[in-house]
Write a protein that binds this DNA or RNA. Structure first.
Length: 276
DNA sequence: CTTGTGTCCTGTAGGC
DNA sequence: TGCCTACAGGACACAA
């Protein structure tokens, strides 16, 4: 489940491998993986383009090409990227960009929910409205208690749900939002409008802390997920998780059992004692 | 405008 | 062993 730290790790490791390379060819194994434009246009336009920059916004990876084109990749739930020699097709390989150094950038996506988009950077299609409407990332200095208070104002939804809303809190997913709520001592089912000033202030800090820690430890690789680094290695943040995926295991602070609840059809983990 | 639910997709885990 | 169902989750469509 690539969230901000996973995508940022991929961005950092991929940069020296693909920047300044030219895309000599593209192979699409699954048509659904191309979100924009049409297959034909995608193939025609991407061939011969050079990779100039590698940026990230929220969970989107932004690959800057020449002539103002942008190759955007969203890994969704199970996608990852590998840089390999021009070797045979990998398992779950959906798209391959051949580069001018006998290597390829391969998009692997078992569940086929991830997408690539080829756009002009000043002209985003409606299918990328999520990118345009994205809120601030917690690691952005502008993501202050004032900002979060403003974005949560008048909302009665559960705080966990709102942290997953990319228009409010860009880059957080199920793992890091649970970890941040634990750090701030807030139950995930709490209604946003019940949070105190101090709780919101704490939450801005713990969101920033867990995302930065996730980056530092190269992301989280769960046993049943497929987040891998571009060289095939795993992240290490899973060893430092306090609540996520720890149902019935002891809380690191108080020793009580971590509980799991369903919020909006997905699991949330929390300590019933440490989180109010 | 808001909040909540269903859907996309496929591999895996668990029940019987 | 094998069939069946539930589940995982990011983003978005849609209903209330």
């Amino acid at each position: 489940m690539p969230e901000l730290p996973e995508v940022e790790t991929i961005r950092q490791l991929l940069t020296p491998q693909i920047v300044n390379r030219r895309i000599t060819n593209v192979i699409i194994h699954r048509d659904e993986i191309v979100g924009h434009p049409t297959l034909k246009t995608f193939v025609r336009e991407i061939k011969g383009k050079s990779i100039l920059t590698l940026n990230r916004k929220g969970k989107y990876l932004l690959i800057g090409l020449n002539r103002g084109w942008l190759l955007i990749i969203h890994l969704r739930l199970s996608g990852h990227l590998r840089v390999v020699k021009n070797e045979p097709m990998l398992k779950y390989e959906r798209l391959r960009l051949k580069l001018n150094n006998c290597q390829s950038l391969v998009f692997i996506e078992p569940r086929v929910l991830g997408k690539v988009y080829l756009v002009k950077e000043d002209n985003l299609p409606p299918v990328l409205s999520g990118l345009k409407e994205m809120g601030l990332e917690p690691i952005d200095p502008r993501f202050t208690a004032k900002y979060l208070t403003e974005r949560l104002k008048g909302k009665s939804a559960k705080i966990k749900t709102l942290l997953l809303d990319q228009r409010i809190c860009a880059g957080a997913g199920n793992i890091y939002s649970d970890e941040a709520l634990f750090g701030a001592g807030i139950k995930p089912v709490r209604r946003a409008n019940s949070l105190t000033k101090r709780e919101i202030s704490n939450l801005t800090k713990t969101l920033r802390q867990v995302l930065n820690a996730g980056i530092k430890y190269l992301g989280t690789t769960m046993r049943d997920e497929r987040y891998l680094l571009p060289d095939g290695a795993t992240g290490r943040f899973q060893e430092r998780l306090k609540v996520f995926n720890r149902e019935n295991l002891p809380c690191s602070k108080c020793g009580n059992k971590i509980q799991r609840v369903k919020i909006g059809n997905r699991s949330s983990y929390f300590c019933p004692v440490c989180q109010k």
